[in-house]
Design a protein around this nucleic acid. Sequence first.
DNA 1: GTACTGGTGTGACCGTAATCACCCGCGCCG
DNA 2: CGGCGCGGGTGATTACGGTCACACCAGTAC
Lengths: 203, 203
Amino acid sequence: MRKFARRGIVLSAGVREESLCFLFEGRLQGVDFTIDGREVGLYFVEPGDFCGELGLFDHGPQPEYVIALTGAVTVFIPMEALREVMMKQPGIVRVLGERLAARLRQMTRQRSLLGLPNISQRVCCQLWMLIPEGDKDGSSGSFINNPPTHMEISIMLNLSRETVTRVFQNLQMREIVKRDGASCLLITDLQTLRELAEGKQEL
Amino acid sequence: MRKFARRGIVLSAGVREESLCFLFEGRLQGVDFTIDGREVGLYFVEPGDFCGELGLFDHGPQPEYVIALTGAVTVFIPMEALREVMMKQPGIVRVLGERLAARLRQMTRQRSLLGLPNISQRVCCQLWMLIPEGDKDGSSGSFINNPPTHMEISIMLNLSRETVTRVFQNLQMREIVKRDGASCLLITDLQTLRELAEGKQEL
DNA sequence: GTACTGGTGTGACCGTAATCACCCGCGCCG
DNA sequence: CGGCGCGGGTGATTACGGTCACACCAGTAC
């Protein structure tokens, strides 16, 4: 078991991480860097997910950094032990394979986002993906705990931090979202947010 | 065994494809669509690779389209049979796991590309990735057979077709690449292309 | 021959998001 | 307390890539 402070480096790129990281609490972000040093956001990790599982399959190095966006509680599971169990227990292989497949699907969705020409839509989609699954079809509002900063969102969406800020300003003016202190973002109008994300409405 | 003409749809998104597609000849492209209908290029498939393997692991539907960019020769392997073999032969699981991991690494690299602010660099990186692995460190030139069209490259890089054309015009003027008919692109100056891709030189 | 289509080449124009330069407010820490 | 750093907010400016509108050419179908 390991705890991380905000900004803590959970997994390092290039290193052969010999363990898999299961997230209990908090939020992590997979981050890569371009040749010229810009940050690129790849995915978010929410509680219940794990990351760093790539080496299990191909023995290669960890391809990207994983950073703690909030304080985080994780459990590290040594790969060697896991590989042995994998041999014996086909159930384990299945779970891990499903996890890998899920990550691939997630990255595909994220990549599609980047194709959207409308910037606000991009941000709204990303916001939508951060809303707890159970709340999405509810008619009442929802909230995102310890939401990513504008900067962290911007690198996910290939935008500048300022642009994200401006979109959020619009969303707040139209009373679609609302800040509740630094550590919580209220989604007051789920319906409209969804329509913005789907492009049925312009911001 | 199945053959596809250029533009043929190899795998359809949304469908539960119950087979895996191994590519013998030609080049395929994984393609998704944004909510507003724009094409997004996800990855290329080169001979020796396969695709459509996601369902093997999570029984979910195929997330994206796979299109033949050239005439293509493929072998379809029924998943059901494969799943049975997977149970018995741990070697098969390993190969498939490695394949999945490789795709994830590939998509990560591709995503990083999109973070590059310099457009020419983006195109050059993509070009570089299309060069046969064996030629990359050679001092002599190389070539890309049946290269993707400008359109197909543009959707991989979130650019417009015209922008890609203009970059290629530059590359040809500087005699870094050269067209050899419609079906072959000669890379005459590997060294410079690499430096452009790495950002050590401006176009 | 003509017509058509797909891939490419090119100019003009324009909108928009990046960039830069600030400011503010808050929390933290010595 | 003061100072600092981080996250957020905002205006002015501008470069750059998208879009549109063409033209061109090779292949091919009839």
